[in-house]
Amino acid sequence: MSQAVQSPITTAPAAGKPILRARGVRKTFRMGDSVIEVLKQIDLTLQPGEFVAIEGRSGSGKSTLLHILAGLDSADAGIVDFDGSDIAPLAAEASRALARSRLPGAELLRLLMLWANAADRRLADIRNTQFGFVFQFYHLLPELNVLENTMLAPMIQHSWLGFRSRSAELRERATSILNDMGLGHRLKHRPNQLSGGERQRVAIARALMNKPKIVFADEPTGNLDTSSGAEVLELFRAAVRNLDQTVVMVTHDPTAASYADAVVFLSDGRVVATLADPTPDGVLDALRGQGA
């Protein structure tokens, strides 16, 4: 029953307060003398408990959009309203603070600025407590074992004393999530001792550990075989179904996109279509319709 819609550009059912709302988001990259406009006036609304896939060709700007929505990158213009507050200015200010100082010998000053930058800290706190991330290349820390990787977010969230006082509870939660992911027997293993599918499941466990409001996934099945990819996507579906988890997933795979509640199609920096209740064929048709 999938249906491709050309416009208006929203995935949102009419009712309920959106958890994430992007309005007029623009992003350009400078490459030498030329300026490339990657995102042109993106509008997007996401409801709590919704699983949205962002589809598009390579270079369509889908990963950049995900990074901006998640506060990992800043937009040149527009608002990104997360749970009632605009995080776009925070991202812009943090980005300016991170930019290399042109003053010679100003490195110490820069360190102090990095430390004192409230926008960066606020944004880091949002990423830590409100968002979860899953990436194509798993991005686990090689020195930490499965359990430690899973507990990375609470480790960052709490002070040494705070973590110690909640250590048992957090360990129990991490173990429980890993058991649900079928990794109960791998707690002490390091990432290099795991298969690709297992690593991605650890990454999902890490993303869910702090009970985030939104999980952002960037090509989570891009590096996996079909069966492992299906397992990972089932885990996302289960999180949405059982935990009412909101998930935003960037993918170029129509099958992967079909696991979502809705698909947003990006082309040339614009949202060109949305598709509710997608099937693989429906997604493929929609892509063909855009000349992909």
């Binding site: 998640a70 990992l72 943090a94 603070a97 991170l98 360190l111 990095l114 430390w115 004192a116 930058n117 960066d120 800290r121 880091a124 706190d125 990423r127 830590n128 407590t129 991330f133 990436f135 991005h139 686990l140 820390l141 090689p142 990375l152 977010a153 960052i156 969230q157 890490r206």
Partner: peptide, 17 residues
Amino acid sequence: RDIGIIKSVGASAGGVA
């Protein structure tokens, strides 16, 4: 790459430094 991961999971610039 690890620094990118740690930051994405919520570490601030000062924290990573």
